[in-house]
């Protein structure tokens, strides 16, 4: 289709007003991309359409601006929270947890077992040497008595 025919077909106006289907949108894009004159025409046409709608513009009440501001702030906050949840490098927050349990690294399990076994070994060794010392002292006393009796 020639440029002038394309311009007069009205498809550009329909496209800028959002009245074209997907196929027509693709056609418009391809034509505009490939034709410098058409590109310039679209810029002029956009300005013309904007001018038409600007003439029809009506100032909305001030309250609407406030609602838009609040909505956009709320949405921005929601998006920020969502992106924080998505970000793996996020910082940990200091949160007070009302829980009586703690979680420790799994290496603490063999360490606890080793400490428990060693404590039992030391306990047994301690008791063994205690009773050995006691019996040795008794033996010593007994021998001393024997020596005194033989004198």
């Amino acid at each position: 289709m020639k440029t002038q025919e394309f311009i007069e077909s009205g498809i550009l106006e329909a496209h800028l007003l959002g009245l074209t289907n997907q196929e027509e949108q693709t056609q418009v894009r391809q034509m505009v991309e490939s034709d410098q004159m058409l590109e310039e025409y679209v810029v002029e046409l956009e300005a013309g359409i904007n001018q038409y709608f600007e003439k029809e513009s009506v100032a909305p009440p001030e309250a609407v601006r406030e609602v838009v501001r609040l909505r956009s702030t709320r949405d921005k906050k929601a998006r920020q929270e969502f992106s924080n949840a998505e970000n793996p490098d996020r910082q940990y927050l200091d949160v007070e947890v009302n829980d009586t349990h703690i979680k420790v690294h799994k290496f603490w399990r063999p360490a606890f077992i080793a400490v428990f076994i060693l404590s039992k070994i030391f306990l047994i060794a301690g008791l063994y040497y205690y009773f050995k010392t006691v019996s040795q002292e008794e033996e010593l006393q007994r021998l001393k008595l024997q020596v005194e009796q033989t004198k």
Partner: peptide, 28 residues
């Protein structure tokens, strides 16, 4: 984009610029 470079306007900036025009269209 083929005709315009990328812009990044906030909702409020867009509203200040085009709010009246959009309201006119909606009222139509």
């Amino acid at each position: 984009p083929i005709l315009k470079p990328e812009r990044n306007l906030s909702s409020l900036e867009v509203y200040d610029q085009f709010g009246a025009m959009a309201y006119g269209i909606v009222l139509q």
